[in-house]
Design a protein around this nucleic acid. Sequence first.
DNA 1: TGTAGTGTATTAGTTAGATATAACACTACA
DNA 2: TGTAGTGTTATATCTAACTAATACACTACA
Lengths: 133, 133
Amino acid sequence: MPSHSASIFSISTGSTEPIYRQLVSQVQRQVAGGQLAPGDAMPSVRDVARTLALNPLTVSKAYSLLESEGLLQRRRGLGMWVADIGARKGSSATMRAEMLRPTLERAAVEAAQLEIDPKTALSIFAKILKGKR
Amino acid sequence: MPSHSASIFSISTGSTEPIYRQLVSQVQRQVAGGQLAPGDAMPSVRDVARTLALNPLTVSKAYSLLESEGLLQRRRGLGMWVADIGARKGSSATMRAEMLRPTLERAAVEAAQLEIDPKTALSIFAKILKGKR
DNA sequence: TGTAGTGTATTAGTTAGATATAACACTACA
DNA sequence: TGTAGTGTTATATCTAACTAATACACTACA
């Protein structure tokens, strides 16, 4: 049961997406992907706030939402942990694909407005995917 | 020189992205893609506001930004028109690809967090692109 | 027992985005 | 000359998101 540092997060202050929402969706994806496994200790609110230069309450807001979702578990006086309900390790491939969908749908709309044909859009995406690993 | 109706816009109120920014980027893409050609008349502020149930000020804010960017031109008492600086018809393929990049880069990051391999991510995107036309 | 580390509550203030209402200067056209 | 339609300005109000400082109850551990 490893314990994670604040480096599992990376927020962009320039984005219009609220910070607490960025934190929430990052945890959702990393739990679904398995990087955050049941029983793992989450970085403390103060740790994340210090590292990312945020207000502790902003981080706490994200953690609270994740707790009410059932993804995290709170242990009084100790901190937050990845919940092990069902002892699942990550989510099914179809569920994870479903989580990726919205962003790709948005990309498809943008490609259409830009008059970029599907073949070209795919090759751009392929290059990006290649570079990211 | 066609004149466009408010139907060139489609905003999502649920998104965290400000409405006026949604309008701005949609015009940017449609000008780059060529759907909005130099000399075309834009729908009036009041028309867009009425159709999309927005405040005219929100639309005006988007138009003002686009004017300061040089994409639109204002004719006093008449309305806004797609600027014909350089008489460009759309942008080059590389420029349009560049505009699509940010969203696809975000998708790549999400795919990595979801542990979705590049091949699978590409096939999901391909299916979406196929369905969108 | 004391100390440091958990998440959280409280209260207050700031900022950006969006709305509402009214008014202004301008233009085309019957 | 009216009338209706342009974008814009001004003032005020509202909400969500974020920050700031302080304090609380709880836990592990030297």
